[in-house]
Design a protein around this nucleic acid. Structure first.
Lengths: 341, 341
DNA sequence: CTGTTAGCGCGTTCAA
DNA sequence: TTGAACGCGCTAACAG
């Protein structure tokens, strides 16, 4: 491995000069710089990041923690983070948390041992106190998809309530007045989305009856078994004699499973029942009928979050404290029928 | 940040002793070890991996290079690699290559600057010579989903030909004799899968006519536009007056798009045309009709590849040189009709 | 069994 | 504008 000393020897200058050339900082004579650069190129010298991190105490690393990378939503977070990181020549480290707060803490500690102070954390279950402690210790910690009021300037999140409202607004515009909601009491998102839907219909004087909402699973580990849950949810709605023309699903994955469950009991989408999703994943336009949904700009958000983190640790000037709230948007496809009133 | 010296001072021992305790190596008195460990715990000491890597020249890092992490197939590679890496307390670094060999090399060089010598590379387009050069320099480089004969012991790959044969075998068993193939000339995989299908039918005395194969796209950037390509492919097959009862798609994504394209021109799957995929992604059991496909055990493979890489750099004893060929398997769902002969 | 010494490769003083 | 000296935190070799 060729070191800074080797280059210095060959170029007949001191290591400090090579260092200055490499970093493009400090005063170096034009000819001298050219000479050194030539040797660097010829020898294929690349600085040792470990030595660099050791002395400068910064590692040019971005760490991301998400529940499970094989899910496209979280893979998108990784994708976006890498895109933004690479623009600043940062490398990306990643860990799966499996939605376990202990894993999250563990991952973050590991990152820090590597000198990584830019961390993008997707945590739905970590306690606010723990996260506040972390934020104090880690200048570049940014939360994605979670809003913590005390840490507002570090949260990159989506307006789920508006998303819910958009859903409701669109369904209303298509003539739907009786809505069912199928969700899962996993985190706050679904609660906010439901709130948005309710708010909208409330404002139209149409309250949504309790029996039209399914959000509790009879079994424990639903996450790995959305399909089964959706079969249950559909059955449950009909068992309760709920009156609805459209189902609002927590997200696209659930929406697709609900469409399948409906199909299996002979209901057609959208002819008999309309369905709406949330996220706008790939599957939303690959399923049939193509899913009308709310777009969650997750790649953009994760790029933004990464840039924000980098800014917080890199920029000398103070950053304007502000919120980082993204808005979802409606994507109309084929899963909602227009009802003539 | 608490260093090894701090611990040493408080515990009233030398830094070396602390180092020995931390690493669990070398001889340390029982009482002494306990005392040091106590201080470590109390002070929350965590070794600085950069300093460690600098002196030991090893970094406990696994690097993975895949085309794009937001695609579930590649996200699965990352997921599996992280699972295996964590078992050995290794961290994972990742980069998107966007299928560009230059990006791949660049990513690998960056990894190496971090002292990372365990690299899992998913490269379809890199030249064999370049990869051989890399392999020589990097002891822990493992190729996933690519077989290079000269580097056989570092390749973790799938038997695509058998996958093709399984596809053909199953279709044949369901009474299909006229097969169409829709694929894309991106890499070797599709060629191998097609070969498997052809081999099988050849052995039954049923050659597949050329007009039943669509594998070239009229436009350039198909990767980001599979749907359009599938619409084209279906049209093309009918335009050619190809005679077929089943379509074998390159992978699940394409299969789903083909089903949609068929649906859009009024053909029902599987009543009018049967369709088979490859990969067994999530979407294969979420689409309707649920897709009969060939399972690609990618998470297991990526875990295996990571363990293999770790073995190659960690284990003192010589590793038995052998191949790492995985077999796909048939997953029967609903997209293939049984034809009575 | 434990401590001392000497670097790993680099960035950062401070002098020249 | 350039160079020499020092130390980041740690491990490894050696001495005791």
């Amino acid at each position: 491995m060729v070191t800074i000393k080797d280059v210095a020897r060959v170029a007949d200058v001191s290591p400090s000069t090579v260092s200055r050339v490499v970093r493009g900082e400090g005063k170096v004579g034009k000819k001298c710089r050219a000479k050194v650069q030539k040797v660097i190129d010829e020898m294929g010298y690349r600085p040792n990041t470990n030595a660099r991190a050791l002395v400068s105490r910064r590692s040019e690393l971005v760490g991301i923690v998400t529940p499970a990378l094989h899910k496209p939503f979280f893979g998108s977070i990784a994708f976006g983070a890498e895109t933004a990181a690479r623009q600043k020549s940062f490398q990306v480290m990643m860990r799966n948390s499996h939605n376990d707060p202990e894993h999250e803490i563990d991952a973050i500690n590991s990152f820090r041992e590597h000198g990584c102070e830019n961390i993008i954390l997707h945590s739905k279950s970590g306690s606010v106190d723990d996260l506040k402690d972390l934020a104090e210790k880690i200048p570049g910690l940014v939360f994605i998809n979670r809003f913590i009021p005390e840490l507002a300037s570090r949260c990159v999140w989506l307006d789920n309530v508006s998303g819910g409202r958009m859903t409701a607004d669109y369904l209303y515009s298509q003539g739907h007045r009786d809505i069912a909601l199928v969700s899962l009491n996993l985190n706050n998102d679904q609660e906010e989305r439901i709130r948005g839907v309710r708010q909208f219909f409330q404002s139209k004087g149409i309250p949504i009856p309790e029996e039209n909402i399914v959000e509790h699973s009879p079994v424990k580990d639903v996450v790995s078994n959305i399909e089964e849950y959706c079969v249950y949810a559909v059955k449950e709605l009909y068992k309760r004699n709920a009156n609805f023309t459209a189902i609002v699903a927590y997200n696209d994955e659930m929406a697709v499973c609900l469409m399948n469950a409906l199909f299996d009991i002979g209901k057609r989408v959208p002819e008999d029942v309309s369905v709406m999703g949330f996220d706008d994943l790939d599957i939303a336009h690959k399923c049939r009928p193509a899913l009308t949904t709310i777009r969650y700009p997750i790649i953009e958000m994760s790029e933004y979050a990464t840039k924000l983190s980098l800014q917080m640790t890199l920029e000398k000037e103070d950053i304007v404290q502000r919120t980082h709230l993204f808005m979802p948007s409606l994507v109309v496809r084929k899963s909602v029928k227009k009802i003539d009133l």
